[in-house]
Write a protein that binds this DNA or RNA. Structure first.
Lengths: 245, 245
DNA sequence: AAGTGGTCTAGACCACTGC
DNA sequence: CAGTGGTCTAGACCACTTC
């Protein structure tokens, strides 16, 4: 682990532990550099990490201040339902309800960088949290990864982890669109809610380290089961609002 | 503007313009340093900015690749409905439907770092996009900013901008919780939808540069009117999923 | 083996905050 | 005016990718 990650981890622990209250000042960069016997640049890398996590804020000329004390989770936990659930202490399960190959639609071709009509694998999965159905996933996998997906256990807990272990696939980048929709009849039946009731929808496209698209998905959460959380600042602006459809 | 921001802007323009296709490689740091007559560190700051925007990705040992070509928007545009709408070419309007002072609730006291029972200002606003009602805002302002808020025009287009111009208030940090809820009877009447229909809810707390909480709000968007978008990677993880309520 | 990004150092100057 | 964070430079070594 890099020196700056160690320093960031040390400071993060102190913040989470409450050594620095919310609103309190962090030591100056000079003092931290002295304390950790590191160059100022290294200390700056460390605090930049904490700033990106939304834990601390900064202004030129003034000491850094603590903004929050909750640990944010990793990309993997955003991407993988199972990994997120496990980190939160829930027991996740899931079932593949259908899985079949078909030619891709024009919009899927664009999102997955495929040739029009190239074969894709469509999978419908129901996910449960502590036994309760909370999520319907409609995922479309690019043809080149389809065989590995079809080999998975239909009750497989973490698709992300299994694909890593079986073929070394790593999800590295994701784009996510979040909005609210009314439950369709299939959604309603699977999630055990009334038709037309509110669902939180997350549409995403995920790519490998090389920038090659792997899958796109339409995930629908039962209202009240999951909340997305984000911290931002004038310096960091990860979330964006979009109009209409 | 800083040198690294100029370089980032130059590269961003080239990407948005299509000079580098999605999936294509960026020039190496050494080449960029030469081209811009800057130190390698400065070039790294520039590409780090683009990486945070989700435009490019990187892996040790390999050239950086282009992941997307859409410009992401600023913190102000996430925080301020009016500023976002303007940047997207929409005409935003709004009306204050009610505004009154009252003692804060226990949960508001925690979120706004107030003493229990301290006075706050509750405001109900309806926001329109091109004349269509799309958003109900229920905002609670801390007592110290209440007078400035009460002096605003009830039809004021951008609260954020007006508060900056009138009292120099700058919103610097925000925490946002996003989920889906069913429209209550008041929501339904104001947004002209049926009771129980899906709404996208954004709850937020905003603070000043000094870390002082200014307001917390419960904003509800009519389904289909707005989508939140986020790009992330194994390196950057701004968005977080949370369970239940 | 050459090229590339990731990490780290040491020092410099500037703009801004806070007293 | 002293302290602090923001920017920039110049150089070094390492881990990894690519060929």
């Amino acid at each position: 682990m890099a020196r700056y990650e160690q320093i960031a981890g040390d400071l993060r622990d102190a913040i989470v532990r409450g050594d620095y209250a919310i609103g309190a000042q962090l030591p100056s960069e000079a003092e931290l550099a002295l304390r950790y016997s590191a160059a100022r640049g290294t200390v700056r890398q460390a605090v930049a990490l904490l700033a990106a996590e939304g834990l601390v804020g900064s202004r030129q000329g003034a000491r850094r201040i603590v903004l929050g004390s909750e640990r944010s989770q990793s990309f993997a936990e955003l991407h993988s339902f199972a990994q997120w659930a496990r980190s939160m202490g829930y027991r996740a399960s899931g079932t593949v309800l259908s899985s079949r190959r078909r030619p891709c639609s024009p919009s899927e071709a664009v999102r997955l960088s495929l040739e029009p009509g190239e074969e894709v694998l469509g999978v419908l999965r129901l996910r449960r949290l502590d036994g309760e159905p909370v999520l319907v996933e409609r995922t479309v996998y690019a043809g080149w990864i389809a065989p590995a997906v079809e080999r998975l256990d239909p009750e497989c807990e973490s698709v992300t982890q299994e694909l890593y272990e079986s073929v070394g696939l790593v999800f590295a980048y994701g784009e996510h669109l979040i909005d609210a929709v009314a439950a369709g009849s299939e959604d309603a039946r699977l999630l055990e809610v009334r038709r037309g009731s509110p669902l939180l929808r997350q549409r995403r496209v995920t790519t490998t380290q090389e920038g090659r698209p792997v899958e796109c998905s339409d995930d629908r959460y039962r209202a009240g089961s999951v909340t997305f959380s984000i911290r931002n600042s004038t310096a960091a602006n990860p979330l964006v609002r979009r109009a209409g459809e």
